[in-house]
Amino acid sequence: MEAAEAAVEAPVPSESFTDQISKYKTMMIAAYKSKPIPYWILLILGIIAMVVAFPASSILSRVYYENGGQSKWIISWVAVAGWPLIAVILFPTYFITKTFPTPLNLKLFLSYIVLGFLSAADNLMYAYAYAYLPASTAALVASSSLVFSALFGYILVKNRMNASIINALFVITAGLTIIALDSSSDRYDNITDKQYIMGLVWDVLASALHGLIFALSELIFVKLLGRRSFIVVLEQQIMVSLFAFLFTSIGTFVSGDFQGMTSEATSFKGGKSAYYQVLIWGAITFELGVLGATAVIFLASTVLAGVLNAIRTPITSIAAVILLHDPMSGFKILSLVITFWGFGSYIYGSSMDDKQS
């Protein structure tokens, strides 16, 4: 009897660090073997696109303004001018997978028009933000889109919210508040206090609209499409981008900014070549980021996309400090840490929901 009790009370030996490493190594090898090599190649390319292309696009937007660019319409137009890149991916996919395009009914068509208009407005708001704010600050404030995505997703799509997600919303909001209170430390000399405040306001509004667009896109999948695949998402992306491109092109033409591109290019630091390179690469990098995010979500998970989205915020901020010499105050560093913490809490909460479902 005593021997049995001793056996029960005997402590279970904990795994050594070497055993844990070996266990994770075995799991990684098993995961690698469970998917074909092309899958991993596409996933890696998607990850690289997210963590490189999106920050590059943000940096290029700020480079445009720092070197003499003035137009908000031009930058918002650049954000959607790369939409043909999606077509280059989509059309061959039809032949490879032997599938047909999704039938386009009136409701779906109108939803694409609405999303296209909202996307055009969203890009214009972000253009104002990058015109008045340092790239590092704009990127940090834009991370608040996660808060609005969660809120609109809860209201419109009935997505679940647990304690970790709610905690993330409060933490990210706290980081945003710190940025707002520290506005005097990173304002450019040629930017007035009013312009800086308006930059913050436009950035928050754009983030809110971005969150709404994300929720509405998910609602379209639930209500109108009823299925979600890589091809269907590309179809939605190309249609929304096309209408956003049309709306933005009209706005850019009516504002006279298209006509003013020649004179703006002439006065641009570095000349016309540098001007058009900034715009062209801005369009390419933004669209590559979109394609990368789409690939990550459907090859891996939304949680991984959330992790990468969290990573690209500090990457953008650090790149802006190094390349554009953005001021980095102690408050901004604190905001960056808090925001990263908020992302981590959100990712943990989302992963818990995925496991429960």
Rank of each mutant, 00 (worst) to 15 (best):
M1Q: 10
E2D: 15
A4E: 15
V8P: 00
P13Y: 08
E15A: 00
E15C: 13
S16W: 06
Q20S: 13
K23R: 05
T26N: 08
M28D: 05
M28R: 08
A30C: 12
A30G: 15
K35P: 02
P38K: 07
I41N: 05
L42V: 15
I44A: 05
G46V: 02
I47R: 02
I48N: 14
V52N: 10
I59G: 02
R62P: 02
Y64Q: 01
Y65R: 10
E66L: 14
S71G: 04
I75C: 04
I75Q: 03
A79N: 00
P84R: 03
I89M: 00
T93Q: 15
F95I: 14
T97R: 12
T99S: 07
P103A: 10
P103I: 09
P103N: 09
L104P: 05
L104N: 12
L106I: 15
L108F: 14
I113W: 06
F117W: 07
D122T: 04
D122A: 00
L124S: 07
M125D: 01
Y128W: 14
S149P: 01
A150W: 01
V157R: 05
N159Y: 06
N159A: 00
A163T: 13
A168F: 05
L169E: 05
A174I: 04
G175N: 05
S184R: 15
S185P: 15
Y196D: 14
I197W: 14
I197P: 06
V201R: 02
H210G: 06
I213P: 04
A215C: 06
K223L: 11
K223G: 01
L224Y: 08
G226A: 07
G226P: 11
F230G: 01
I231E: 08
V233F: 08
V233I: 00
E235H: 04
S241N: 10
F245P: 03
F247K: 04
I250D: 01
I250M: 10
T252F: 05
S255T: 01
S255L: 09
D257A: 12
G260Q: 13
E264K: 11
A265D: 12
S267V: 12
A274W: 10
A274V: 13
A274K: 11
Y276I: 10
Q277Y: 07
L279I: 09
W281L: 15
G282V: 01
V290A: 07
L291A: 04
L291S: 01
T294M: 01
T294H: 02
T302P: 06
V303W: 06
T313L: 08
T313G: 05
P314D: 13
P314G: 08
A319E: 09
A319M: 08
A320V: 12
A320M: 05
D326C: 05
S329M: 10
S329T: 13
F331G: 00
L334P: 02
L336E: 02
G342P: 02
G342S: 11
S345V: 03
Y348Q: 14
D354P: 00
D354W: 14
K355P: 04
